[in-house]
């Protein structure tokens, strides 16, 4: 200990010199424009190399994440396929029934732009009219509803996501068929609001909210979220329900566009004059 102290006293001027020299370097780099640029350019050539390596490792992790989500999806589909196979084995239908014909077609797409921090959030996907995407189609993932296609170009489509103040999607409870409209009132990107739900419907927290069978946009029973809170809003005779979304819209990579093969037929019938 004494030796150490003696050493420190003996070389105190040297250590002081080092400290002050470092401090002047700090001053030179921080308060002189030319030196600052040279310093950061030089260090950037080194840190740039490091950053490149880091990005490589990071992207390999991300692609692993994508693989995980895809394999989950495959597992789900395999299970579904198994159920249908069993169903077909037990029900051999000689008559061609419209119940078993394909009504929806899915177009998978990758998200290339996404926002969740504005009032009117949009998502851009890399499939467009060339791939069969049309205006007004629904967009879903394996977890839940994402939004509705608003504009289509040749290779891209712009989706009005659930987190858009103009979005109106009809939804119902999975328990009963009482239905209302999903809107977004901003602020929280994980919560949407279900309005116009009749007051006699029986609600409970954590009930699942799904798409209705009346919609021509989404298939019946696609998950949206679970009930977080329900209340009557200032004298209204309808419930207002806060719905916690199943899908985290700020972290979506792949979506599926739902193409209703009979939509035009249904629409034309709906729009026909009743006279």
């Amino acid at each position: 200990m004494q030796e150490l102290l003696a050493f420190l006293v003996r070389y105190s001027h040297f250590m002081l010199f080092c400290i002050l020299q470092f401090f002047s370097f700090y001053l030179i780099i921080n308060y002189n424009q030319a030196q600052k640029e040279i310093f950061f350019n030089t260090t950037n050539t080194f840190t740039g190399q490091f950053q490149k390596k880091y990005d490589e490792v990071k992207s390999s992790f991300i692609s692993r994440q994508i693989l995980d989500s895809l394999s989950d999806r495959i597992k789900d589909l395999e299970e579904e396929k198994e159920i249908y196979r069993m169903y077909l084995q037990t029900h051999v239908e000689p008559v061609k029934d419209s119940l078993y014909t394909q009504k929806y077609e899915l177009i998978s797409a990758k998200i290339i732009y996404n926002s969740v921090n504005t009032w009117d959030n949009f998502i851009l996907i890399d499939k467009g009219s060339k791939d069969g995407v049309q205006k007004g189609m629904g967009v879903i993932t394996s977890k839940g509803v994402i939004g509705i296609v608003r504009n289509v170009s040749e290779h891209y489509a712009k989706i009005m996501s659930l987190l858009n103040s103009q979005t109106r999607i009809s939804a119902c409870l999975s328990k009963s068929n009482h239905f209302g409209t999903i809107t977004w009132r901003g602020i929280d990107p994980t919560v949407t609001t279900l309005i116009d739900l009749p007051s006699h419907a029986k609600l409970a927290v954590n009930d699942t909210v799904v798409t209705t069978q009346y919609s021509q946009i989404f298939p019946q029973g696609i998950n949206i979220g679970r009930i977080e809170k329900f209340y009557f809003e200032g004298g209204s005779n309808f419930y207002t329900v806060d719905v916690k979304l199943f899908e985290d819209l700020s972290n979506v990579q792949f979506v599926m566009v739902v193409k209703n093969l009979y939509k035009s037929e249904a629409d034309s019938l709906l729009n026909q004059s009743s006279l």
């Binding site: 001027h13 010199f17 002050l20 002047s24 001053l27 030179i28 308060y31 002189n32």
Partner: peptide, 25 residues
């Protein structure tokens, strides 16, 4: 004292030369 004084005087010169740290160093 020699080390401390030289740094302070250098810094003083830097203020007039508008190059903080260069003369001091």
């Amino acid at each position: 004292w020699l080390v401390i004084l030289s740094f302070l005087v250098g810094l003083g010169v830097d203020f007039f030369y508008d190059s903080p740290g260069v003369h001091a160093s």
